[in-house]
């Protein structure tokens, strides 16, 4: 929890700069790319957090990563601060927090649809339209397969979960049976 709060604070700082220079969308993609590099090469975290290496050496390494990811000077400086403050280990959380903030800022909603089997585009389109109509925001819908749901689907919109799966209906039925409703 504390970890998420700290990550959110870093993300807030960066997006505040982006709001001023109107590059917040750009910073989002750059931060995502840098995070993808770190995700692909986890040893980078160890190297950048290792106090045995000089800070200059570590910053030099970070500069190369940022350059490879095509990061602007602002994002690079942001990453340097993370290394200096040893907040680099939260990079993945900071990226997630920033994406969320950016979506809110841009009026976008990330919608994850889960079902036991792939869903037709027509139904996904219906879901997207319905949510856009309900929230007045652009819905970016993605799909995840979850066979344990048996049937139906689960829609995740940020922290909101709309559960219409057969599995959950069975659980509810079980609870009612346990309560003696039947």
């Amino acid at each position: 929890m504390r970890k998420a709060a700290i990550a959110k604070r870093y993300a807030s700082a960066l997006i505040a700069i982006g709001k001023v220079d109107l590059f917040h969308e750009k910073y989002r993609s750059e931060l995502a790319k840098v995070a993808a590099v770190f995700a692909a090469e986890p040893t980078l975290y160890k190297a950048l957090l290792n106090p045995m290496h000089k800070l200059e050496t570590r910053l030099e390494l970070l500069g190369k990563v940022c350059e490879a990811a095509g990061a602007t000077e602002t994002v690079k400086r942001f990453m340097e601060i993370l290394v200096e403050k040893r907040g680099i280990r939260l990079l993945h959380d900071i990226d997630a927090a920033y994406s969320k903030m950016q979506d809110e800022l841009s009026g976008r909603l990330r919608v994850e649809v889960q079902a036991p089997a792939p869903i037709t585009d027509a139904i996904l389109g219906s879901i997207k339209d319905k949510i856009a109509a309900e929230t007045k925001k652009e819905a970016i819908v993605s799909f995840s397969a979850r066979p344990e749901l048996i049937g139906g689907m689960v829609i995740k919109i940020g922290n909101t979960i709309l559960d219409g799966s057969v599995k959950t209906q069975l659980e509810k039925a079980k609870e009612k049976l346990l309560e003696g409703a039947f």
């Binding site: 139904i123 879901i127 319905k130 139906g152 689907m153």
Partner: peptide
């Protein structure tokens, strides 16, 4: 499944 999804949507 399709009927369920449509109805839920």
């Amino acid at each position: 499944q399709e009927r369920i999804l449509k109805g839920y949507t």
